[in-house]
Each structure stands twice: as structure tokens, then as C-alpha cells.
Amino acid sequence: MRSIVKLAAPAAAAALLLAACGTTGGDDTSSGSASGSSGGDCPDGISIGFFGALTGPNANLGVNINNGVKLAVDQHNAESGACQVTLKPFDSQGDQNQAQGQAQQAVGDSEVVGIVGPAFSGESKVADPILAEAGLVGISPSATNPALADNGWKTFFRVLGNDATQGPAAAKFITGTLGKQKVYVVDDSSEYGKGLADIVREDLGSADVKDNTVQTGQTDFSAVVADIRASGADAVFFGGYYSEAGLLLKQMRDAGLSDDQVTFVSDDGAKDEGLITAAGAQAAEGAYVTCPCLPPDQAEGSFVEDYTAAYGTAPATYSAEGYDAATILLDGIADGKTTREDLLSYVASYDEPGVTKQLKFDDKGEPSSVSVWSYRVEGGEIVADQEIDS
């Protein structure tokens, strides 16, 4: 396995920081040369792609991942004699309507031998069949819909647990740890949000007192807030992304539904500072989110230090998972697996320690090791709360 290179030199860190600015899609984001440096085993222009939101309402999550991927690529390229790899962006804007075109661009680029992503479940449902038909391996650091692994796509892998793990854990956390017995469940009608919320509903059983559905992009939740009040709920679970989650939370608190009365819990799609921005720091205080992701500050090796040096900020949601997904692809390239077919076979048999977990997949592309954590908004930041027992 490729070692984690510590980029301690100020010049290297500064170069990475400058390269990180403004990488919102459309241009190569690799800081290394595209030309090979390992002779015949390294085709000129060999590339991996990042497929996810680099612009759009949920771009924070995609940028977090892309930064982790870029760090892995830059560290790989900095190694002596390394085959120089270019990182190419495929900006879906987190919109499954954009996914088909982006997937076709990726498979049509013969230099691209592997993909980190797709990042979101909705876009994965559209893009993954296209990647599978072309034999282009994709490793998602963040798409959690369980059904994605049930389609027979031999190119599908993910480095985190799915919502069949997160959903029951969230329900257990709400009713067990938090002691809530009247839970109002809302979803944003997306492939991801509704899928997760439905699992939570099932596992809550009689504690699920009322259900509702909103739309992605909706901004007025007054009717939902009134219904939450009328239901007598002592907790709300929202399945969806941070933009809508934050606005719903703000309008709940503005309507007088305090944290003491109705605890707010959401998911990994809301685990972003955008939740606090949308809700306001006061309204967001005390809210919880669950995530099948490792707290970034617990990543192994020098990852946290390297990431902070490169970008001037600590790693955020799925940065470390993005790094791990990219590392698998880069390890394969370093091992001479520079065709799509060879790299796919390499990924399927991969079994090495990453910064988040042991990286190994079953025959459906699911990781061998999973965990779910709760996080809480404290002092205007989302901080790790506890690992939820399975």
C-alpha cells in the first residue's frame, strides 16, 4: 500500500493551498504533471475523476470530498518515480438530472481509469449503470442508499456503511439515548432523504407519530412546523440535505418549538456547516446529526495535519473517506494497474488499512467495516458526540 506522505515543507503546503482555491469544476484540479514518469507502465495523461457536487446548493459536501481526493493525488504525485496522475472533475451539482451527461463524459474520456464517486445517492442511481457498462470503477465516499449495491453493478464500491446501518442506528439513538417517544419524521423526497427516512420510520415503530414530505429547494415550512406542534412530537427526524434541514430547524425555533420541547435530529446529508448557516447559530445549537463516517479528527496517520496544511482548515464531512477512496485507485495505478479492467480487478480484491478503516469490500461492493456516529451542534460547530452501538 502507498504510504501516507507527510507534506510538512512550507513550500509544498503553500502550493497545495493555492491549488485548492477556486476548484469548483471544469478544469483539471491535479497539481502534478499529466505526463508519465514510470516508463511503459504509466500511460501519458492517466487520470482519475471526482464525480459529485462542486457547485450548487449542496456543494460543501462535494468540495470536502474533492479536497480529500486532491490531497491523495498530490501526495501520490510527489512520491519519487510516481506515475503522474491527473484529477478530473465531473461536477454533477448534486443533481441527478446532470448525472447522465457527467457520466457519459467520464466514460468517454479514455484517460480516466477510475472514479471517486458518485457522491450522492440520486446521481449514483443514474450514473452507475453507465459506469458499469463501460467497466469504469467508481468508489463512493458518501452515497448511502442501500439499493445501490443490489443492482449487480460490478464497478460499484463504497467505503462507508449504507443507510440500512444508519437508519436503525438513528432510530435507536433517538428513542434509546435521547429517550424520545414521539418522533415526527420528515423527508425531502430525494432518493437519499426519503430512502433513509423510510428506514428510520420502520425502525421507530410506534414512536413514529407523524410523517411528512417536503421538496428539495423548498423554503417555506410553516405548514410542517404547525403540524409538528399539533402532533405533540418531542423529536423531529429530517432525512435530506443541510439546506432544507437548516431552514426547517430555523422555522421550528422561530415558531417557539425550542430544543427542550422538540429535539432536532438529521443525517449525514445535513452534517455540514451549511446547516448552521441556514438555521442560524442560536437555532442550530443542540441539534444532532448521524453519519456512517468517522469523526475527521480521528483519521489515522498524518491525514489531519496534511489536510490542514494544504487547505488552511480542518477536514470536514467525508474528506477522509474521499482520501481513502482515492488512495485505493492510486495504489492500483502505482501497482501498474493502468487500464480500467485491471484497476477494477485490483479494487475488488483490495485489503489494506486506510485512514478511516480497513478498506476491503464484499462481492456487492460494500465495506467490510462500518460504524455510525452521532454529532451535535455545540458552540456553533458540529462536534462528535458518540459512536452508536449497533
Rank of each mutant, 00 (worst) to 15 (best):
Q96R: 10
D41Q: 11
L329C: 09
E305V: 12
G81P: 13
N67D: 13
R229L: 07
G195A: 04
V265E: 10
A19Y: 00
A82H: 07
L71G: 02
D363I: 01
K210Y: 04
D335L: 07
G138F: 05
Q102M: 15
V73H: 02
S38P: 00
P129A: 09
E202A: 15
G312L: 07
E352Y: 10
V73S: 01
P10Y: 11
V383N: 08
I228C: 07
P353G: 04
S374F: 00
T308N: 06
S258T: 15
D324K: 03
S266I: 09
G195R: 01
Y375T: 00
K154V: 11
L178G: 05
P292R: 09
V107L: 01
G365F: 11
I388H: 02
A348V: 00
V200W: 07
G152S: 10
L17T: 01
S190N: 08
F221R: 01
Q218S: 15
G322C: 09
Q282H: 00
K125S: 14
D385K: 14
V377W: 08
G269P: 01
V372Y: 08
G232V: 07
R2A: 10
P315W: 02
T313D: 13
Q93H: 07
V159C: 09
G336R: 13
G269D: 04
D385V: 00
T175A: 13
D227M: 05
Y311I: 02
E387L: 13
E191F: 01
D227G: 04
L294G: 04
Q166T: 14
G232Q: 09
S92L: 12
S110R: 11
Y323L: 01
V214M: 06
P10N: 08
D362W: 06
K250I: 06
G138E: 14
S47G: 08
T175N: 04
A384I: 04
I139R: 10
D109R: 10
P295H: 03
I139W: 00
G25W: 12
S371T: 10
D208T: 03
Q104R: 11
G232R: 10
A281V: 15
I139A: 04
I115W: 07
S369N: 12
V370C: 04
A270D: 14
G246D: 09
A316W: 06
P89Y: 08
A147K: 14
E285A: 13
V69P: 00
I228Y: 07
A8P: 00
S319D: 12
I65S: 10
G161T: 07
S243V: 15
A9Q: 12
F50N: 04
A103I: 04
V186K: 01
T219H: 01
S345Q: 13
V304A: 11
A11K: 11
G94R: 02
L148E: 06
L196V: 00
A169L: 03
G193V: 01
P367T: 06
Q84N: 15
N145A: 15
D203Q: 14
V377Y: 03
P141T: 09
N64L: 11
T356E: 02
A281L: 06
Q386C: 03
S140K: 03
P43V: 08
D27C: 03
K210Q: 15
G274H: 10
V73C: 06
E341R: 07
L247V: 14
Y192M: 04
